[in-house]
Amino acid sequence: MLLPDNIHPTLSIYYNGSVVIKVLKLKAKQQVFELYQEVKDRNDMSFSTFMLTLDWLYLIDVATVNEDGWVELCS
């Protein structure tokens, strides 16, 4: 759910997207699992939530994932 009304806000895709973006701003290009590990260290995010967040960031043209598994911010 993007904007939840019955759960804690830190469980929303908006919040988790901001965590992923912050990590990507520190290192602009990362492998998917490396990025997940860094995000998990900052925020206790499940892998399924992480993948849903990456999907959302891709859909709104904030991040891309190439065939080799590298995630980077769009310019």
Rank of each mutant, 00 (worst) to 15 (best):
W56D: 12
N66P: 06
L59C: 10
K40P: 00
I60E: 10
Y58W: 10
L52F: 07
Q37H: 08
K40D: 00
M45C: 03
M45F: 01
T64E: 14
S46D: 15
L57A: 06
D44I: 01
W56K: 07
F47T: 01
Q37K: 11
K40H: 11
T53H: 05
S48R: 14
Y36K: 02
Q37T: 13
L57E: 02
D61T: 01
M51W: 02
M45Q: 04
F47L: 05
D61A: 09
D61M: 03
R42W: 06
T49V: 09
D41K: 14
I60W: 07
Y36H: 05
T53D: 03
V65L: 14
M45W: 04
D61P: 02
V65F: 02
T49W: 00
L52A: 11
T49Y: 02
R42P: 11
Q37N: 08
E38K: 11
T64R: 01
L54Q: 09
L57C: 06
T49H: 13
M45L: 04
S48A: 09
Y36A: 07
A63T: 09
D61H: 09
D55A: 14
V62W: 04
K40I: 00
N66V: 08
Q37R: 06
N66Y: 03
T64N: 10
M51E: 06
L54N: 02
I60T: 09
S48C: 03
V39L: 07
E38S: 10
T64S: 11
V39M: 13
N43A: 09
S48P: 00
Q37E: 15
N66W: 01
L57T: 02
M51G: 10
L52R: 12
D44F: 09
M45G: 02
D55Q: 13
W56Y: 15
V65Y: 01
Y36Q: 03
V62L: 15
R42K: 15
K40E: 05
L57S: 05
Y58Q: 14
N66M: 01
N43H: 13
D61S: 11
Q37V: 07
L54M: 10
L54E: 06
V65A: 06
E38G: 03
D55Y: 12
